[in-house]
């Protein structure tokens, strides 16, 4: 290796290397002037937006306030909530089952789960909703009995599958297919040593899933599940195709009469944002709880308080 001549080595930093710091060695952090320019730009934009909101008479904020708690809007909101909660519960329970089936060594179970996921992810959710709603047209009666044998109970399909049931089946069964893949990823993220340790202490497969593997997977799957739940809030507006007036449809019905589209869409958006905010807060809380074992504070060391414990 050749040594470069002294003149090129003496850069500015090296030239001052031996200088004594004048203010006692205080370190000046890197300045970020760009950040201040950015903040200024955001403030200006925000001021413009507020001015637009306040001074624009066509926006009809009075209508927004008036319709915010209107009866049909409230009923729509409630229906949106019901659909989201029931569909997500169905999706998570069935999705977990499908994920475990797919990961099981049993080829039949694994094949059935793969087929389910393939079908329900591969067809449009709108089609699925309509399919359940119109099931009665191809299968007028649902029979309970021995296949090819006697029938015990016979129920008209249209009685069994109401609008709400069709909506739940459409949304929930579709959600389960996506959920299965999220939960499968979560299960696979758990160290295989965990199942071995569970087996070594005599746990069966299902007990190991319930007590050891799924609780650990839940830390990983919580953010995507929250994502899907928030998405479901808005996806549930599709149930208008089976004739259910949830939140978005409720405001659409109103503005189809009074032509105040923007104010009413703002009404719906305010509720969606509120629900999303609540869900996000719940998510953060659960996440913090699940992370406790990893990032939580160290507990106090217990000092010899157990001396008199009966055995």
């Amino acid at each position: 290796m050749t040594v470069p001549p002294a003149s090129t080595r003496a850069t500015s930093t090296q030239a001052t290397a031996n200088e004594q710091p004048v203010d006692g060695g205080r370190i000046i952090p890197v300045r970020h002037p760009g950040q201040w320019i950015g903040v200024a730009a955001i403030l200006v934009a925000a001021a413009l937006f507020v001015q637009f909101l306040v001074t624009n008479e066509k926006l009809r904020l009075d209508l927004v306030a008036g319709y915010l708690f209107e009866r049909s809007v409230m009923r729509g909101l409630l229906l949106t909530l019901e659909l989201t909660v029931v569909a997500m519960v169905l999706g998570i329970v069935l999705g977990t089952l499908l994920a475990i089936m797919r990961l099981s060594g049993n080829r039949v179970l694994s094949f059935v789960a793969s087929g389910y996921i393939w079908f329900f992810r591969g067809t449009p959710i709108l089609v699925q909703l309509l399919f359940w709603f119109f099931l009665g047209s191809i299968l007028p009666m649902i029979n309970l009995g021995i296949p090819f044998g006697p029938t015990f109970v016979e129920i008209p399909t249209n009685v069994l599958i109401s609008q709400f049931t069709a909506a739940i089946l459409g949304l929930g069964l579709n959600e389960a297919a996506y959920m299965a893949e999220i939960i499968r990823a979560g299960i696979k993220s758990v160290d295989p040593g965990q199942s071995e340790a569970a087996e070594a202490v005599g746990m069966g497969r299902m007990l190991a899933y319930r007590r050891i593997i799924l609780p650990q997977a839940s830390r990983v799957v919580l953010p995507p599940i929250a994502n899907n739940t928030i998405s479901m809030l808005k996806l549930s507006s599709l149930v208008i195709v089976v004739g259910l007036p949830e939140l978005l449809t409720a405001v659409q019905l109103i503005y189809s009469r009074n032509f105040q589209q923007i104010p009413l869409l703002i009404v719906a958006s305010i509720w969606y944002l509120l629900l999303t905010t609540i869900l996000t807060i719940i998510q953060v809380r659960i996440e913090r709880r699940l992370d406790r074992s990893v990032t939580g504070p160290r507990p106090a060391i217990r000092v010899a308080e157990r001396q008199g414990t009966p055995s």
């Binding site: 160290d191 040593g193 965990q194 071995e196 340790a197 569970a198 087996e199 070594a200 202490v201 005599g202 746990m203 069966g204 050891i212 609780p215 650990q216 830390r219 699940l290 074992s293 990893v294």
Partner: peptide
Amino acid sequence: IAAQRRGIGMVFQKFNLFPHRT
């Protein structure tokens, strides 16, 4: 098999403690 394993304790190289339990 699970029942048989209950009579045999196993200690692993990487401990394999359940991280979500005290």
